[in-house]
Write a protein that binds this DNA or RNA. Structure first.
Lengths: 221, 221, 221, 221
DNA sequence: GATGAATGAGGCTTCATTCAT
DNA sequence: CATGAATGAAGCCTCATTCAT
């Protein structure tokens, strides 16, 4: 009698399990980790904090993840994967390159509203520890995101819609950077972001900045 | 009995001493801290690492700085102060707003070539730990830099040189962010940066991107 | 309703079950434990290691044994019981005391060839942890073995075959000790023990040493 | 001004410092470790126990020793070094080979009276953990001791004083083993060892056993 | 000033053991 | 019987910080 759906292979500590089959508590731990890392920072929190936030026993974290760092990796991996998937969907969707790049910006700001904690982890912690961006899955995922965006830039340039001469990689990095720092000052409340309208406005500002740059259309300079 | 010339006010742990009178080893510690923080990150290094790199006993670090965090603050303070001073000099110098903003970008990339470690500290660690940007001198310094740049944007807008409608703060953040991420991919070698010429080219790309944005001047879109 | 043949008394955790009726997996666990304890030592292995080696889930170990220590006790008990039974058989068999003691030595070395892991457990772990020989079943079993051998010595002394004046207990301990250390250097490969012949020779050396001592028959001393 | 005697090189965690210059507390820790390991066994004690017994702070143990295992190694090393030195002195001293071997046995038993804790560590813990005798300094030291004793046996055989035909290594191992097990039963109080006289008697028994073996001089067998 | 021995709290990690299925 | 997810106490080790010299 095949115990099909319930068949659960060995916990496979740290390997990404089939989402449909993923133990509920493993997910709880990952969700809690996002919140806790976002709140107190990777170095500022203890595994115990994550476990408590997840409502599980201390040791269970180590049942599912090799150690604290592996947990962080996993969190990054998942968050970036989500982001990357969305960016890909936009990149492969309809619209001109400029429209799609604008879409990426808008999406990013929207996520901030929906899941600020996740964004903070991505923004404040990802890639910020030396040797984090420099190696491993994170770097790879980051490069992929960069590549997808650079690809859009390239398309736009080929279509004559975007300015030629710009290195697509530099452009992509600039876009992500501008995006990130803008989100950061939103997160840090350097910019008024209380109301829906304010965030909406900030969103268009970012889009505008990245697409049109600073200079006035018919600048005297 | 006045020990006139040697009269050194109480070590003034952690206060910035008169540069001319600053003990050589205090300076050595600060320099070492920049390198070590850049190399291994604040949390990834021990006071002993800094002391060793400075060639002093680690007790001495505590002679000059209240604790590890105070040392970090001081490092940030100095690095940002240098950056801020340069940005201010450019901001108050000659040229149109656009030219001066371009100057800031060029200066930043140049610093990277001269002192990559210092830049990495600024880029990777500053403001990236939750509660670090959110409070303290760092945030203040960051806001100042943001303000100076936003000021230039405002001037440019007033002069009709830069596009009105853009929030100067968002623009400033975008500029810093684009700058940072571009530098980051340079640092991470995602962009070829071996030769002088390559770095020079990257520099102009960044300037270009920030000032003109992505869209072609007479885009068909 | 008597479940006659299948009637298995409550698992009787840890009690030695009727050998004929012993669950196969219980035996597998015990066998695995001998190997694993021998390989990594009691403290150096986890219950999970034993379970894995036995090919069962580690929960099952607790089905059959109260805890890790009880498992160790059981392993010792079985190994020593086997050894003790053999020694007893020899002791009660034919031959002079000297011949029988020689038989014990020969048997011991032979076991090493057959089941080196089991010997290592006996040699390296038994009784070596403070409080292990000092109390519990192990000590008792050890004392029994000592007693049986001392008995043979006593018989030999009574028969005038073995030197009087020697404390039988000291003699028994000396014999076991010499045996153990000799086996140890075999196990550790301090002595060439690759070939059958070499082991055979070592065996006779040990017998010789214990029975005749070091001094030459008509020593000048 | 040369600070000759006080000149203390870097702590050299774990390296054997010049005895004359060894920090008092380092010595205290080593002494305490011998006692505590002997009392509760390596696995049965915590670093905190050692620190408390030594009257120092927890962390100081790690100032002088890399970790718990390194501390154990050091303890073994020192104890074996002392034993080895004594054995060497006896081996190189006057007397026939038999007399000197007897001297080794007597010395060993005497040490037990003087420093039972140290002996227990040597007896019960040394070489008893798998992979302890098998590698590292311990094995080497053990082999040396074995070699020195085997050397005496060889001399005795050459002089016709000891029985030829015996493998010196087996003989040395047998001697050490008999010695150890005899000491063990003394330590474990399987043999009455309360009074001075009893221990003295046991000592001669061991000497007798090892030198003359079990068999009666003119055994009927 | 300078040194590094000494301190001890904090936190990660392990792993024996329990228990629901 | 069998499984392995879940628990949590225990203990090793790190490292910021203090202090006597």
């Amino acid at each position: 009698m095949p115990r099909a759906r319930t068949a659960r292979r060995a916990p496979a500590r740290d390997a990404a399990p089939d989402p449909l089959d993923e133990p509920e508590k493993r997910r709880a731990i990952l969700h809690a980790a996002v919140r806790v890392f976002a709140e107190k920072g990777y170095h500022g929190c203890r595994i115990a904090d994550v476990a408590r936030a997840a409502g599980v026993a201390y040791g269970l974290v180590y049942h599912y993840f090799r150690n604290k760092e592996a947990l962080l990796e996993k969190v990054f991996e998942e968050q970036w994967a989500l982001f990357l998937a969305a960016v890909r969907a936009i990149a492969e969707g309809p619209g001109s390159a400029g429209e799609r790049l604008a879409g990426v910006c808008r999406f990013s700001v929207d996520v901030l509203k929906t899941a600020p904690a996740a964004v903070r982890v991505l923004m404040l912690e990802v890639a910020r520890t030396p040797n984090s961006l420099r190696a491993g899955t994170n770097r790879q995922t980051f490069e992929e995101a960069l590549g997808v965006i650079a690809g859009m830039v390239r398309e736009g340039q080929a279509a004559g819609e975007l300015r030629a001469g710009l290195d697509p990689l530099v452009a992509a990095a600039g876009l992500l950077g501008a995006l990130e720092m803008s989100l950061t000052i939103l997160v840090l409340d350097l910019l008024p972001s209380g109301s829906e309208a304010e965030v909406e406005r900030a969103k268009e500002q970012v889009v505008d900045l990245v697409l049109h740059g600073l200079r006035a259309a018919r600048s005297p300079g």
